[in-house]
Design a binder for these strands. Structure first.
Length: 232
DNA sequence: AGTAAGATCCAC
DNA sequence: TGGATCTTACTT
């Protein structure tokens, strides 16, 4: 059971909102093709002046820029950015307007439109097991059909049409009961260690991506005494 | 103007 | 472990 997300639901700090998105549904209609994704893995990102500590792993760490403008806007819009020149990754913008924040969608289960999601994946990469269709932020972006830069800023609260697409975020009636947390994936330095345990996932879910250290993060983790058991 | 580093994925 | 592929942000 789900209910439509409101701005108020998403106006809190990203690190607080992130676990509440586990089990939520993201419905996308792109070029008339509908996909419903059940979200199983997310990461919180803050920004300059967000919360009680700066987030050195965030695109908004240095303040507003043309790229991260969506992160500073109204909660409930989607920040879609290009990763490594190849992948379009999707965040739900969180926190009040004027404060940067987002929750990166890293993994999910395709509930409806699996044929559409599979075709999109085949056009851009390799189709593997059904559980891998939206496993990892790049594949998830492919599966739901949202692309950088055209879909950046689309509103998932009102579902308003934007560049030929509509999106809607539906929250679970009850928060997920079995949630795990740990360091964010692929984030450089201290920001990718347990100093920022801002990755959340549904414990044991098969659509959750595999953990990898970011550049210099393993060394930073060792310096502060992180152990392998902290990674899941 | 030049360059290095990506919130990744895939093949070797 | 390295290549693809291109944008952004930072340096000269």
């Amino acid at each position: 059971m789900t209910r439509p997300a409101s701005r108020v639901d998403l106006a809190a700090l990203p690190v607080e909102v992130a676990p509440t998105l586990l089990g939520a549904h993201l419905e996308t209609v792109v070029a008339g093709e509908r996909v419903v994704l059940r979200i199983t893995e997310v990461e919180a990102y803050h920004g300059l002046g967000t919360g009680d500590r700066p987030d050195p792993g965030s695109h908004a760490r240095g303040g507003p820029t043309a790229r991260n403008a969506t992160m500073w806007g109204e909660p409930g819009h989607l920040y879609v950015y290009l990763s490594h020149g190849i992948h379009s990754c999707v965040n739900v913008v969180c926190g009040p307007e004027g404060v940067a924040g987002g929750v990166l969608l890293r993994g999910g289960e395709v509930l409806e439109g699996a044929d559409v999601a599979e075709r999109r994946r085949r056009e851009r990469g390799v189709v593997r097991a059904r559980n891998d269709l939206a496993r990892g932020p790049g594949r998830l972006g492919d599966a739901v059909g949202l692309r950088h830069p055209v879909h950046d800023g689309i509103d998932a609260v009102t579902g308003a049409e934007h560049a030929g697409a509509r999106t809607r975020l539906l929250l679970p009636e009850h928060p997920a009961s079995a949630v795990s947390s740990g360091p964010r994936v692929g984030v450089a330095g201290i920001a990718g260690t347990t100093a920022f345990p801002w990755r959340f996932w549904l414990t044991g879910d098969p659509t959750v991506s595999v953990f990898r250290w970011g550049r210099g993060a393993a060394e930073a983790a060792a310096r502060q005494g992180d152990t392998p058991s902290m990674l899941d």
